[in-house]
């Protein structure tokens, strides 16, 4: 599990520290929401979900 947690940490680090200014240049995205925030909260929720799946009790 230690290796999986470290892999999740690296994935989260990658998702949270991407060069965002190269990826998100517009202010309007799906459902009229700003794409930057959609990405950040989506990535964050994904990391929380994966952490839940990894650390929940069997």
């Amino acid at each position: 599990m230690k290796e999986k947690a470290f892999a999740l940490f690296l994935l989260a680090l990658f998702l949270f520290t991407l060069p965002l200014s190269l990826l998100f240049r517009g202010v309007e995205g799906p459902w009229g929401l700003p794409p930057l925030y959609l990405y950040l909260f989506g990535a964050w929720a994904l990391v929380v979900l994966l952490a839940f799946l990894l650390f929940r009790r069997p």
Binding site: T17, P19, L20, S21, L23, F24, R25, V27, E28, G32, L33, P34, L36, Y37
Partner: peptide
């Protein structure tokens, strides 16, 4: 969001920090 997107002076709030210094500050 629709009103903020219609106000150009609020656009920096909806965009990522700009340039290398902005990215460095984020990280």
């Amino acid at each position: 969001f629709p009103r903020a997107q219609a106000e150009p002076h609020l656009h920096p709030l909806l965009l990522p920090p700009e340039g290398l210094s902005g990215h460095l500050a984020w990280v």
